[in-house]
Design a protein around this nucleic acid. Sequence first.
DNA 1: TTGTAGGCGTTATCAG
DNA 2: CTGATAACGCCTACAA
Lengths: 330, 330
Amino acid sequence: MPTIKDVAKKAGVSYATVSRALNNHPEINEETRKKIVKISSEMGYQPNAIAQGLVKKETKTIGLLIPDITNPFFPEVARGVEDAANMEGYSVFLCNTNWSEEQEERYLEVLMQKQVDGIIIGPSSERTGHIKKVFHLGIKPAVFISRIDYPNSTSILIDNISGARIAVEYLISKGHKKIAFIGGLKDAFSNQDRLLGYKNALEMNGIPINQDYILNGDFKRESGHQATQKVLQVNLRPTAIFAANDMLALGAIQAIKEEGLVIPGDISVVGFDDIGFAALPEIQLTTIAQPKYDMGRLAFLTLLDQIKGGDSVINKRILLNPELIIRKTS
Amino acid sequence: MPTIKDVAKKAGVSYATVSRALNNHPEINEETRKKIVKISSEMGYQPNAIAQGLVKKETKTIGLLIPDITNPFFPEVARGVEDAANMEGYSVFLCNTNWSEEQEERYLEVLMQKQVDGIIIGPSSERTGHIKKVFHLGIKPAVFISRIDYPNSTSILIDNISGARIAVEYLISKGHKKIAFIGGLKDAFSNQDRLLGYKNALEMNGIPINQDYILNGDFKRESGHQATQKVLQVNLRPTAIFAANDMLALGAIQAIKEEGLVIPGDISVVGFDDIGFAALPEIQLTTIAQPKYDMGRLAFLTLLDQIKGGDSVINKRILLNPELIIRKTS
DNA sequence: TTGTAGGCGTTATCAG
DNA sequence: CTGATAACGCCTACAA
């Protein structure tokens, strides 16, 4: 690959002139500029971004740290950040942390070494000690996807509380009073907020909260399956289930069918997330949609703002609106 | 962030010594090495990979070019390459080409500018002119995921022909003789090969090929839906359908149910790919699985081989074995 | 075993 | 408007 020197030699000018020409500096003769541009493209010259990065101290590169691209929630988010990044001339490093804090820490170090201009983090856990550790080496602009307790950080997420409330209020509006909450990881902020929204909705409608109707586990289908089996056995069987995510809802549906009950005739089910398959004709899950693509897009745009120094308010939380998608399970 | 100079100053040695110490050069005093390592870690020194890349002319970075991470086929592939890459100390740029050749070309240029050590390409089309154009600027090691007609290239893919044959032979073994082929894009190599495997299986079992049973379209669900509606109307209605991918199979299933027919009682369906939802209890699609994760892993490993110059045989095709997954639609 | 100095490909500063 | 030249942070002969 030819370098600036090669182009300069061929054009009979100094490196500096070539550099100026290629970067559209104002103080250059239009004639020579054209000549240089022509020659450089003839030679197939491509600027070496590594060298540029070294001197300009910016690499036009960001890191995207997520737990697992294989999890149906993340591809759309990733697509959102990538599209936005690409449009602004940035490239993105994909980093799967596999829900491991150590891995997250290792990647963070690599990203700093690679001199990324900023980082988007979909955290693996609620804990942030390891993140803090790395960031203290040299703080970079960062935005979090999901709520996180990290000082002076920007995070972008949907309003889980109101999302859950909307779901449960919808159920109530359909006449349900015995509504169960099939939760995920008890400690997860998202789970806590969704539970809160659930409780809010009940309270606001004068429906007492029944602890027998509230179960937690993890965010996987089997957990929803088991919890639902259990909740189906309580004294006054619920007539509706609000699951903290779509995988749990799927498990719930399975348990309900196994019990010989009909959806939504006997029991209604509402999920959360609206991951891809929820729309399949075979599933048709009623759920709360997160604007995943937009979350990614916005995450990048917010990050870019920080990178460019335009965003002085670093410590903020951007809340996106959830949307109820009514399908056939309710 | 501290640099080598800072560490050197604090340690009272030259830059060179620090560099040597940190890179475990043999010709260095063990004492001073320890001292330097200690100091550098105390200072939180992180090597600048950009600077290293400039002098070493390798960036420990690769590009992953795929059409769309949102397509259920790719996340697992991506995860496979990323895991393998990470294990070898490489980072990966995620590039969604959105099935566009121009976008593919643009990204290729960016990747060359960013001085990646190699590229893994999941092509957007069967055409390769634009790829050739960029590669001629400065050829990089590259491996293709999927069959492609590109000179001196390595590609890794599953054996579509035998995969299709296995699927159809399985159907035949269950007594089916009237088997339809619901295809995707007519020109796609994968579609051609799967059609070929379908024909092979029929021929080998003395079953005549009926052109009325063969329909193409694109790879999306709606296409499978429409094609199946059509094929259900032919004179001797098929008793089984082999779809060129799972999305088509899903569309087929929908059409069959709409017609009031039972699966697999009246008609069996077999898909291809085994994307995530095929295993859902509500779907339970019998299908041919592609080892997606392994494809990604292997793609990276093969690329690494080329990068290290160990792989002298560049022009080759690595064929992975497809696997029949029997579930409830057959 | 360690230090000195040149260079990787660019950009940017300072003279001319 | 253009040409030297010094960085950017690191590695690596070549000397010492």
